[in-house]
Design a protein around this nucleic acid. Structure first.
Lengths: 180, 180
DNA sequence: TTATTATGAATGAACG
DNA sequence: CGTTCATTCATAATAA
């Protein structure tokens, strides 16, 4: 199992990390980055809409489904509690991809985030939402998430690494964070 | 096959086999011995308490953390199952697997085991349990696991290999196994 | 040394 | 939501 194929690196951007048969979702560095940021920003249990939204944007970095986002948050939240301690290893920081194409560009103005759910009435649950086509959703459908004085955390200035190759294709990703 | 191999001779005791800078936990022969015994005794998925307990005792043989125990069982269970592929014992096969390990035997004097969880109310999960100091747990804290006759498996008489050198320092390890 | 194996650690996916 | 399973990744140990 020593598989040295690990070396198989992504061609241009860190797409599929594992060259093996991807039976399951394999998040790219960018995707993880965004998800982590969202999580650190306070997002714990994204609504169906938020999941759809996030998934849509992350699809720019690679194949991804809504359920992946759903699971990601579920797992991350559940495990955070069990993982409060030190994280082994000296060099285990991040990005094991080997490709450092993280054009550190700051998007202060445009912070990435989740769109408020503002769940409209009744809708199918989770990702099983009939899978209507592939993207019918809009980026900013919400018109009034209402005020809410609940948790309004502001985003932390974070960088956004984008593939320098498809700069034109991937959306700017400047979403607004507005927790329900 | 490895399992026992690297364990080397139990003739004495293999101190911290870890050659040096252990990036990751490297179990000693004794630790593996105990874990293996517990596993073969039927323990598959130790509870948080059991993990803590086991970890505490195994620490006598070397550095170890609760999460190591947790992972060990996870891996061991998963792998044994996976390795059961294409292995049809023609004849008298011990067929030790399965869940029938009900050797309801007497907990003879020195049986190694895990202490019942007796999960009292709410407790942190897994090995993340606050890491309260270094063992506040008692060997037989339970006074009444209360009703619930879930799975009460008894231990199979097994010997306990102990380092003859540190007999005094390491706990006798005569615990009782009582699944919940 | 390099190649392979054994296994610790991590996490996606799901179960109950 | 907590817990468990299945795969995969990473690396110490060991064979070649």
């Amino acid at each position: 199992m020593g598989e040295g194929e690990r070396a198989a690196e992504s061609g241009g951007f860190s797409a599929t990390r594992a060259g093996a048969k991807c039976g399951r979702w394999n998040p790219t560095a960018e995707q993880v980055k965004v998800l982590t940021d969202l999580f650190r920003s306070g997002l714990r249990t994204p609504s169906t809409d938020q999941i759809q939204m996030i998934s849509a944007h992350l699809s720019a970095f690679g194949k991804i489904e809504s359920k992946n986002v759903f699971y990601w948050f579920q797992n991350h939240k559940a495990r955070e509690r069990h993982h409060k301690k030190r994280r082994r290893g000296p060099r285990d920081e991040e990005d094991d991809d080997g490709d450092h194409q993280k054009a550190r560009s700051r998007c202060l103005a445009s912070e990435l985030c989740a769109i408020a759910g503002c769940t409209k009435g009744k809708q199918d649950l989770f990702w099983q939402r009939q899978e209507r086509e592939t993207e019918t959703l809009e980026l900013f459908p919400l018109k009034s998430c209402s005020s809410d004085e609940e948790k309004v955390m502001s985003m932390r200035s974070e960088l956004w690494g984008r593939p320098f190759l498809d700069a034109a294709r991937d959306p700017p990703l400047d979403l607004r964070l507005s927790f329900i």
